[in-house]
Amino acid sequence: MSLDLRIFTEPQQGASYDDQLALARATEELGFSAFFRSDHYLAIGDGDGLPGPTDAWTTLAGLARETTTVRLGTLVSSATFRHPGVLAIQVAQVDQMSGGRVELGLGTGWFQAEHAAYGIPFPDKRFGILEEQLAVVTGLWGTPEGETFSHAGEHYTLTDSPALPKPTQDRIPVIVGGGGPRRTPALAARFADEYNQAFPEIDTIGPRIRVIEQALADAGRGADSMVQSAALVVAVGKNEAEFAKRAAAIGREPAELREHGVAGTVAEAADRLRDLEKAGVSRVYLQVLDLHDLDHLDLLAREVRPQLD
């Protein structure tokens, strides 16, 4: 199977660390390549978010010690949440703790209410912050041992940093996404190993990949130097009744899920995944919104995935 399937969840909607551990272990045992989570501090939309948020990198540090093979990461961390020097240390340490299984998705941040709720500044203009964070984080990781890293920018200044600790991996994969027509593709081409489209309209996926491939060419990179991925909600049933039950459990309408996600019967889900691959996607993050429905993951692994071989 050439299409890489990953599990992605939204713990801010209501999940404890133990809930996430159970899902991450199921992800690993069932052979999905990675467990990713969002990086949010406030529930989005309806719901109280009980028992409350868990910090993404604290959670991933725990999972790094309680899993053995599955890759771990964020989709995506907000550049407003952490100083890039601190983020570089955190991610490198979790990479060490996992034996080299970490990936970093980083974005500008968008959810103003969670910033207000926890006293986190939310500047109007954040693209420059993201750009500098990517430069600092990758610069710190890439500085050889025994040398120092300095950066003087509009938002951050680092002076003679020892640039430690170093990740276990030679290079921690960096994931960038976003819909901007010029700056975002150029930023991805400069820093990223993967470009992610988060919950796109299905018919826009292929054209967006062509935009990113042109940005790569403009930067002197080959199209195969970047993974093209998409994150889509998943809700699949062995039959229509089971699918409808799973749709109801996450508060979504079956017709809407079929239009926008990997959803419906096993055959329909497999068809959608094959269509994504034809559009140029090589990795899909399946957004699992009911963390307690481990039978759902089992169905995806045992009945959907084999149809892609």
Rank of each mutant, 00 (worst) to 15 (best):
P173D: 00
H155Q: 09
D4T: 05
S77T: 13
A113S: 13
G45L: 09
G180H: 07
G128W: 09
Y17H: 12
L257M: 08
P181F: 13
V211W: 07
Q169P: 04
P306E: 06
D275A: 14
E154T: 14
A230M: 00
Q133A: 13
L158T: 10
A61D: 08
D46H: 15
I7N: 02
R6C: 11
A92W: 06
R305N: 01
Q20W: 09
E201M: 13
F127R: 06
F122H: 10
R246C: 03
G52D: 01
P162V: 04
Q287T: 14
Q287A: 15
F191S: 01
Q93N: 12
T58I: 10
P123T: 04
H151D: 00
R71E: 04
L297D: 02
G52S: 06
V262F: 05
A79S: 14
D124G: 15
D298A: 15
E132M: 12
Q96K: 11
P254W: 05
Q307C: 03
G280F: 08
S229K: 02
H151G: 04
P121L: 11
Q214L: 11
G109C: 12
R65M: 13
A56W: 07
I129F: 02
A152L: 15
D290Y: 09
T168S: 11
D275E: 14
F81Q: 01
F36K: 00
A230Q: 00
S150V: 05
T184M: 12
M97F: 15
E303F: 08
P167D: 04
G109N: 11
R65T: 13
T80P: 06
R37I: 15
T58C: 09
A241C: 06
H292A: 14
